[in-house]
């Protein structure tokens, strides 16, 4: 398959990255190139193979239901570009 500029724009939109027309033009062949290269995986016979779920055999541990965190609003907001009255602030969302 081939990635056209419309697809590049769509993907960039999904990824929330603004792209200029020039970037789109440049990205389309680049992505095509890379995707064309990874395409070779299609030739691998994977019948009966389960997708990998854990790199090294390991079991998920479950945490006890205890409140051990929170109450650190200052720390949570410390690096915020804009924070007011204990909230993070973002451009107004019209719902």
């Amino acid at each position: 398959m081939s990635v056209d500029t419309a697809t590049v724009r769509h993907i960039a939109r999904l990824a929330r990255i603004a792209v200029s027309d020039a970037e789109v033009e440049a990205l389309a062949p680049e992505l095509n190139n890379i995707l064309g290269w990874v395409e070779q995986l299609q030739e691998v016979d994977v019948s009966g193979v389960e997708p990998m779920t854990a790199v090294i055999p390991n079991h998920l541990r479950l945490r006890e239901d205890k409140v051990t965190d929170g109450g650190i609003r200052e720390a949570v907001l410390a690096n915020a570009p804009v924070a007011e009255h204990g909230f993070f602030a973002v451009p107004k969302v019209i719902e």
């Binding site: 965190d69 929170g70 109450g71 650190i72 609003r73 949570v76 907001l77 204990g86 993070f88």
Partner: peptide, 9 residues
């Protein structure tokens, strides 16, 4: 209170 029950996670 807002953001008082928030961990870094």
């Amino acid at each position: 209170e807002p953001n008082s029950q928030v961990s870094l996670v």
